[in-house]
Design a binder for these strands. Structure first.
Length: 876
RNA sequence: GCGGACGUGGCGAAACUGGUAGACGCAAGGGACUUAAAAUCCCUCACCUUCGGGUAUACGGGUUCGACCCCCGUCGUCCGCACCA
């Protein structure tokens, strides 16, 4: 029977429409079955989807379809992370309103996602720039304000003095504004902050419970939170050296054990005392200015040499009041870590050592390695920062570092300076509070009002939402909300007098910190329907890029806690399982060298292979093109492949199949034309094999074979089913694909026989059963093809709504085992024996083998190791 | 600098808890069908070999009956973080 080639352009839209008509992917919150929430990180509506999206959503869709088949009530929603700078840039550059630009992009990307055949519940879709969404975000903000999780403080921003605007860090290039080229200044503005540090310890501790997260991500978060245990120590200032009435300097240290190695104190240029000293001394002032300037440029910061200036201030050593030390201002001390002041112990810290050598300060070794010799141990150019034995440290001598730490901590805690203990134990975190103020238009307005008389007040909830005005312009730099003629003017909700709206909008990370919760009841007037949120959260499987390993995931973890405190959810953690997928990468092609080098798109070239050499030529002119490194797909390198083109020429199933095959999902996958063609060949082959046998199979029932030739087919089907199921459970899509290939190879000959009419009814039943299993196995990856094949067999039901088949244990178990037989650890023979043969029987059978006999050469074996069902090893 | 991951054929990769290294795919080569091409189907495909076998999982050691897997050291690649006191 002649069969048409499978035509995805015809089949795919047809099945998508069918799924749509039957509402297959709408999720009912009231469905009593066990829940499964699978979510891929929602996209920014940049305009077009790229291959990274295809891979991400293909993975999520496999999980969603698989879990649905396994009987779960699956939630698989999609939305848009729609606020952010690109829309404002587009507005300024192309004179298009950010709103219009964003919603147009959403419309075209939505069409692209739909063409992929994803099993999404589109009824729950929203964009974070929808008033309905940011309205609820403003409600959350006010709830968080009431719980004391929001506050204002002065904070530094990158300020472009030419454009009069605040710049994000990524807009600062080599210390200059990306558009104006002006030297960026650090300015202090009063900004809004979320108190994420209130949860530092909890966010750290709970990492241990996230056992379905990659170890790598947990470690990155752990380092980011950066807990350290130490001591704050107060040092008395020698009164006559103080620039003002200040009597002491507080220092944070994790190494109080090295206190006798101290030779100076260093404070940040932004330290209050430094400012006092600067006011009195122009040289110090100039030095502080220099430090601040250097701080703006990353490049300078990395190469900066350690610099300091003596303030003239002297302090007394906490363990010996007669010992005075100098206080320096140093460029490497940061005001926002610890207390902005350190004590320098040159023998125990490389940075302090470099500093001490430069300014001729004493270097006293106080810790030596355990096998060191106290009399001869000295420090040269390298500090010793390890553990060891205390030396030159008076009453600490001979102790271990840990014991010395405890001793100093206890002693200083018991002593006092003024009315307070000289030192206190202190746990310090690297994590800082989350600054969310952005001086931009295209974001969620911070719902507060500034009144001269009443201060800063939240917008009353009944007055929400604070909507963004539509009539704004982007022809001038700065925040359009600031210069809007009327928007900011509002009556004070308390006294009724003229007041001003906050014009800062929220960081877009706020939008993405709770969207997964909103998906559980996007129609709800309150931010959440708590019952729905509690039912669905945490997300069972979250899938996205590793680039969000820290910020997005940490902020979301914070938000879940904040929403718990404000009574919106019960969940402790937002994401139970996390999977970070690899990128889609592609070869790069270019012509010319150096400055004249020009990147060429893969669509414009032809690749040929001859004598093992791959050559690329330009299609238009035939000129040679250099084949370069494999890199992440990017517009600048032009190594991008447009998903639309692929779907148009091969279909969505081929694209989905390819991005999931070959590479493990957490590793990068190399996009190649040959690979896609291979995937496409698979879809065609599967269709051909099934459709050619379809007529002969239509009328037979699916029944596994118990014996004879067909038994092997049923066994292969059930074994593959078991294995692929395990692969899907572990998100090992590449392995599932390999097994599916293998299974199709096994089924090829039987299907051909069936098509040729050479088989009996029992055989056909076994083949039909095997094909039904094959269809179920491929359905999560290539759902349209699965439906098409199933329909060809005469099935009326949708595969998308069908239950996962279950395997028969009897068919999975092998009745005979092939034992590899090793002699001294090298494989020499094979032994096929009944599965239930006991050790003695196996040993006997092994010794009877020719290969074993000749190896033994008449001698008795030293030892025979039989690992049941695995291997036999004979030691001679 | 600190922390982490990784290193297997021409390529992407498999290999369960320490048990036959290279499944599956790509590329390549040969053949069948065809006037021809495409498509399809079949065969070969780590290296060496005196055809018995020998050598191979970055390199050098170790543990073990047995090591891609565990331990020690070296080299390399990638990622994250960083004047963090």
């Amino acid at each position: 029977m002649a069969t048409e080639r499978y035509n995805p352009r015809d089949a795919e839209p047809r099945w998508q429409q069918k799924w749509n008509e039957e509402n297959v992917f709408l999720t009912d919150n009231a469905d009593p079955r066990e829940k499964y929430y699978v979510l891929e990180m929602f996209p920014y509506p940049s305009g077009r989807i790229h291959m990274g999206h295809v891979r991400n959503y293909a993975m999520g869709d496999v999980v969603a379809r698989y879990k649905r088949a396994r009987g779960y009530n699956v939630l698989h929603p999609m939305g848009w992370d729609a606020f952010g700078m690109p829309a404002e840039n587009a507005a300024r550059d192309n004179k298009v309103h950010p709103k219009e630009w964003t919603y147009q992009n959403i419309a075209s990307m939505k069409a692209q996602l739909k063409a992929m055949g994803l099993s999404l519940d589109w009824s729950r879709e929203f964009a974070t720039c929808d008033v309905d969404y940011y309205h609820r975000q403003q409600m959350l903000f006010i709830d968080m304000m009431e719980k004391g999780l929001v506050y204002r403080k002065k904070s530094k921003v990158n300020w472009d003095p030419v454009d009069n605007t605040v710049l994000a860090n990524e807009q600062v290039i080599d210390g200059r504004g990306w558009r104006s080229g002006a030297l960026v200044e650090q300015r202090e503005l009063t900004q809004w902050f979320f108190k994420i540090t209130e949860f530092s310890q909890e966010l750290l501790d709970a990492l241990d419970t996230l056992d379905h997260w990659p170890e790598k991500v947990r470690l990155m978060q752990k380092n980011w939170i950066g807990r350290s245990e130490g001591l704050t120590i107060r040092w008395e200032i020698v009164p006559e050296t103080s620039p003002n009435a200040e009597r002491e300097i507080t220092v944070y240290t994790t190494r109080p054990d090295t206190l006798f190695g101290a030779s100076f104190l260093a404070i940040s240029a932004d330290h209050p005392l430094a400012k006092e000293a600067a006011a009195a001394n122009p040289a110090i002032d100039a030095f502080c200015e220099e430090c601040r300037r250097a701080g703006t440029s990353l490049a300078a910061l990395e190469t900066a040499e350690k610099k300091g200036m003596d303030t003239g201030i002297r302090v007394r050593h906490p363990l010996d009041p007669s010992w005075e030390l100098p206080v320096y201002i140093a460029n490497f001390v940061l005001m926002d870590y610890g207390t902005g002041a350190i004590f320098g112990c040159p023998s125990g810290d490389q940075r302090d050592l470099d500093f001490a050598r430069k300014y001729h300060l004493p270097v006293v070794p106080v810790v030596m390695p355990r096998d060191g010799d106290a009399a001869s141990f000295t420090i040269g150019d390298v500090a010793y920062d390890g553990d060891g034995i205390m030396i030159n440290s008076r009453f600490l001598d001979g102790m271990g570092t840990e014991e010395a730490f405890e001793t100093v901590a206890a002693k200083l805690a018991a002593e006092s300076l003024g009315n307070a203990p000289q030192a206190e134990r202190k746990v310090n975190f690297r994590l800082r509070d989350w600054g969310i103020s952005r001086q931009r238009y295209w974001g969620c307005p911070i719902p507060v009002i500034h009144c001269d008389d009443c201060g800063v007040l939240p917008v009353p909830k009944q007055d929400l939402p604070v909507k963004l005005p539509d009539d704004v312009t982007f022809d001038q730099p700065g925040n359009p909300l600031d210069r809007h003629p009327t928007w900011r003017h509002v009556a004070c909700p308390q006294c009724g007098k003229d007041a001003r709206r906050e014009t800062d909008t929220m960081d877009t990370f706020v939008d993405s910190s709770w969207y997964y919760t909103r998906f559980t009841a996007p129609w709800e007037h309150e931010p959440t329907d708590k019952a729905a949120a509690d039912r669905w959260l945490p997300v069972d499987q979250y899938i996205g890029g590793i680039e969000h390993a820290i910020l997005h995931l940490l902020y979301s973890r914070f938000f879940t806690r904040a929403m718990r405190e404000t009574g919106h959810v019960e969940a402790k953690e937002p994401f139970k399982g996390l999977f970070t997928q690899g990128m889609v990468v592609h070869e790069t092609y270019s012509r010319g060298h150096g400055l004249t080098r020009e990147w060429v798109s893969p669509a414009d070239i032809r690749i040929e292979e001859a004598d093992g050499q791959r050559r690329a030529t330009l299609l238009s002119t035939g000129e040679d093109i250099a084949i370069g490194a494999i890199e992440k797909m990017s517009k600048s390198k032009k190594n991008v492949v447009d998903p639309d083109d692929i779907i148009a020429s091969y279909g969505a199933d081929t694209a989905r199949f390819f991005v999931l095959s070959d590479s493990p999902p957490d590793r990068d996958v190399i996009w190649s034309e040959a690979g896609v063609q291979g995937a496409h060949r698979f879809t065609q082959r599967m269709w051909r094999l099934v459709s050619e046998a379809a007529d002969a199979l239509k009328t037979v029932a699916a029944t596994p074979a118990k014996e004879g030739e067909a038994l092997a087919i049923s066994q292969a089907a059930h074994r593959t089913l078991k294995a692929v199921q395990g692969d899907y459970d572990k998100l090992a899509f590449n392995k599932a694909v390999a097994r599916i290939y293998e299974f199709v190879n096994t089924l090829a000959a039987p299907l051909a026989k069936v098509a040729a009419g050479e088989t009996d009814a029992g055989y056909r039943s076994a083949v039909r059963e095997a094909v039904e299993i094959l269809i179920a196995l491929v359905a999560p990856i290539t759902p349209h093809l699965a439906e098409e094949c199933s329909a060809a067999l005469g099935n009326a039901h949708l595969i998308a709504m069908s239950a996962w088949p279950s395997y028969d244990e009897v068919l999975v178990i092998e009745n005979e085992i092939v034992y590899p037989v090793q002699i001294n650890g090298k494989k020499r023979a094979e032994l096929t024996i009944a599965r239930d043969a006991d050790q003695n029987a196996v040993q006997k059978a092994v010794l009877a083998l020719d290969a074993v006999g000749s190896a033994l050469n008449g001698q008795a074996p030293k030892k025979i190791i039989v690992v049941p069902q695995r291997i036999v090893n004979i030691v001679v």
